[in-house]
């Protein structure tokens, strides 16, 4: 499988990364180089093999339902690039 610049543009959009139109062909080449590299997996027989998503063989640990965190808007907002009072702010969204 290989991707064309239009597909690269779509992926970039999905990933919310601005890519200049002029950069698209070069980026498509890079992406194709990597896709070509990983392509070799297509030839392996994986019939009946279950995907391994974690090497930790235990059940999800559960914590108690107690409030231990949060409670300071100031701490939370201290790193915000833009804020008004205790809100994060972003360019206006039209739903």
């Amino acid at each position: 499988m290989s991707v064309d610049p239009a597909t690269v543009k779509k992926i970039a959009r999905l990933a919310r990364i601005r890519v200049d139109e002029a950069e698209l062909p070069a980026l498509a080449d890079e992406v194709n180089g990597i896709l070509h590299f990983v392509e070799q997996l297509q030839s392996v027989d994986v019939e009946g093999v279950a995907p391994l998503t974690s090497v930790v063989h235990r059940s999800l640990p559960l914590r108690d339902d107690v409030v231990t965190d949060g409670g300071s808007a100031e701490t939370l907002l201290a790193n915000a690039p833009d804020r008004i009072e205790c809100f994060f702010t972003v360019p206006k969204v039209v739903e």
Binding site: A12, R13, R16, I17, R18, L76, N79, A80, P81, D82, F88, V90, P91, K92, V93
Partner: peptide, 18 residues
């Protein structure tokens, strides 16, 4: 660009993200 780190402005939310 919302809660920490760099923000590069854009005309709308999506453009700001991108």
């Amino acid at each position: 660009g919302v809660r920490f780190g760099l923000r590069v402005p854009g005309k709308d939310l999506i453009e700001m993200y991108e």
